[in-house]
Amino acid sequence: MVTLYHYLVLSALLFGIGLYGVLTRRNALLILISIELLFNAANVNFVALNRYLYPGQPLGQAAVLFVIAVAAAEAVVGLALVLALYRTFRTLQIEKIDLLKG
């Protein structure tokens, strides 16, 4: 029997994986990929809590729609910034992008 706890643990696992990716990736594009995983972990949580605690009133699903829209905006701006970074520095390795390092 699938309980709410299964979904919550799954989303925590997904969040942990995404966090590991954000912290360890050296490529700016791959960090953006990991951030998408974080968004999806939150979305699974929203929908699961909605289904189990407040069935019949899809407020959580509406919140997920908002999260997806904001995530799309984030991805668009983030990817534009990645392209601008690549044009300026000719690399995407984030440790080489150190213009502000004293």
């Binding site: 905006a73 701006v77 534009a80 910034l81």
Partner: peptide, 12 residues
């Protein structure tokens, strides 16, 4: 927000 993202992406 989406419009701002669009304009920002075009600018960058």
């Amino acid at each position: 927000v989406l419009l701002a993202a669009l304009v920002g992406a075009v600018y960058f």
